[in-house]
């Protein structure tokens, strides 16, 4: 089945994106499962004007936003995996951003900036695809991307020169 094959090919990317959004492996896979089930159920609503991939990201993001809205209303605390724990990650090399530092910086980004940045950087969507997956105009995507990068630069490097980390 063509459609299902296309979905299948996107699953690794969806898992990666969901992991980066949720920071929790089980929760990320739950999110992907919800997304796939909805996509399979609503396949007849999909009009192939664009790639299946962007449509799947859009579904996933909508479900994630709904979850967040619901949980924040209830005041739930979502456990964050210690997957980013130091030992599992290579120490920062000179001229690189320490991963633990980056990990914390990402967490502090506003949701909309995080969603946009990860779609572009991690998933390699074109600006137009990313904007349509987020349901926003291209210009809005660019300004979110710009703000995300400026914020991350503040927290991972100094204004005039990137902070160099020699050895951990």
């Amino acid at each position: 089945m063509d459609f299902l094959d296309e979905i299948e090919a996107t699953v690794p990317a969806l898992r990666r994106y969901a992991r980066a959004l949720t920071r929790n492996a089980d929760r990320a896979d739950d999110l992907v499962q919800d997304c796939l089930e909805r996509a399979i159920r609503k396949r007849n609503l999909f009009t192939p004007t664009g790639p299946v991939q962007a449509w799947l990201f859009r579904i996933l993001i909508n479900i994630w936003r709904n979850d967040l809205r619901f949980e924040r209303r209830r005041g739930d605390q979502i456990p964050i995996d210690s997957l980013i724990a130091e030992p599992s990650v290579a120490p920062a090399q000179p001229g690189r951003i320490a991963l633990s530092e980056m990990s914390r910086a990402i967490d502090r980004l506003p949701d909309d900036q995080r969603e946009a940045l990860l779609l572009v950087v991690l998933e390699g969507l074109s600006y137009h695809e990313a904007a349509s997956a987020l349901g926003i105009p291209d210009g809005t995507l660019m300004s979110r991307l710009g703000r995300a990068r400026a914020t991350l630069r503040m927290s991972t490097g100094t204004a005039d020169e990137p902070r160099l980390r020699s050895i951990k």
């Binding site: 980066a20 980013i84 290579a90 001229g95 980056m102 990860l118 950087v121 991972t156």
Partner: peptide, 18 residues
């Protein structure tokens, strides 16, 4: 250059999941 390092860091953090 900092933006590029951000990209690398993001990829290093989450890329392996795929």
């Amino acid at each position: 250059a900092n933006w590029r390092r951000q990209n690398e860091a993001l990829d290093a953090l989450f890329g392996p999941v795929a």
